[in-house]
Amino acid sequence: MTLYASTGHLLLTPVDREAPARTPRLRELDLGERADPELDAFAQHVAETLQTPYAGVNFMGEERQFFAGLHHGPDAPRRGYPARSLPRDHGYCPHVVVRRRALALEDVRDYARFAGNAVVDGSGVRSYLGAPLTDRRGFVLGTVCAVDLVPRRWGLDGLATVKGLAAELIELVHTREDGRGAPRPIDPQGC
């Protein structure tokens, strides 16, 4: 991870060297380009499980991140967040993808690297919990994540829960992939 650009400015987002290989994989899986009602429902499941106002299923491209699954709770304030698409340098999911590990931030303002992030300033996000979505080929496709507008103590239970949700979702991705590759049954009637 590069912390300083050649200009001496602090970089908040790590360099993602796997993005060029990940992008074709996302296209192959038909992920990361459009909203998906099934993934929206999964994001709602994440929010309900972790009791947060916002949750997402986020896929990381080369230039942007796309929330193919997104949940905005009915009582959550509407400040323009969450958006379906964000630049790669916004938020915390890019860090999860590059690190290839779950990330729990109890209060994002406690971390210099994250405190000045546009998501904090623009939407009031205060806590974040995310886990990588690693497919069977070893690609980290994106994240399952949950955010809150207040500091949260996620603890080991929160980390275990979000990792379990990521495993549940990657099974759904694999099931979809296997279903697309399976030959269609032959209709004995010839119809």
Rank of each mutant, 00 (worst) to 15 (best):
G61N: 09
L141Q: 00
R64S: 09
G91W: 07
A83Y: 12
V108F: 03
G116V: 06
V96T: 09
E48G: 12
V97G: 02
L105V: 02
L50R: 07
V125H: 02
G164T: 06
G130C: 01
P37K: 08
D178L: 11
D187C: 01
G155Y: 05
G181C: 12
G164E: 08
H9N: 14
Q65S: 00
A115N: 07
Y92V: 10
F66V: 01
G80W: 05
V150P: 14
C191K: 15
Q189F: 15
P183H: 04
G61R: 10
Q189C: 14
T161H: 06
G32F: 04
Y92K: 12
R17S: 15
V150M: 14
Y128S: 02
G155V: 05
E62H: 07
R153P: 10
D30M: 13
A146P: 00
R64N: 08
D178E: 14
G158Y: 02
H45V: 13
L133M: 03
D89M: 10
P14I: 06
A35I: 11
V144F: 04
C145V: 03
T161Q: 07
Q44E: 12
L165S: 02
V57M: 04
H90G: 11
G61K: 06
E106H: 12
G124F: 02
Y111L: 12
A55I: 03
H71W: 05
V140P: 01
R78Y: 13
E38N: 10
D178A: 12
V147Y: 06
P37E: 10
R152L: 07
G116L: 08
R78E: 13
D16M: 10
R99N: 14
H45C: 12
I170F: 07
P53E: 04
A43S: 06
D107M: 07
G179H: 09
Y92S: 13
R101M: 14
F67K: 10
Q51R: 15
L105A: 04
A160L: 11
Q51Y: 15
P77W: 12
P151F: 02
D89K: 13
G80R: 04
H45K: 14
P74W: 07
A131M: 03
V147I: 08
V119N: 03
L133D: 00
A182W: 09
A131P: 00
I170W: 04
E28A: 14
P82V: 00
V125K: 03
E177K: 05
D157M: 10
G190K: 00
M60N: 11
T161E: 09
D110E: 13
A112E: 14
G181D: 15
L12A: 15
A76Y: 03
A102T: 12
R101L: 15
V108K: 07
C93P: 01
Q51M: 12
A41F: 09
S127H: 01
A182L: 07
A131Q: 02
R27A: 15
T161K: 10
P151R: 05
Y81P: 05
T134N: 11
L39Q: 11
D107P: 08
T52C: 07
D157C: 11
A102L: 13
G142E: 02
R137K: 08
L105C: 05
T23P: 15
G190A: 01
D110N: 13
D110V: 14
V120R: 03
G91E: 05
R22P: 03
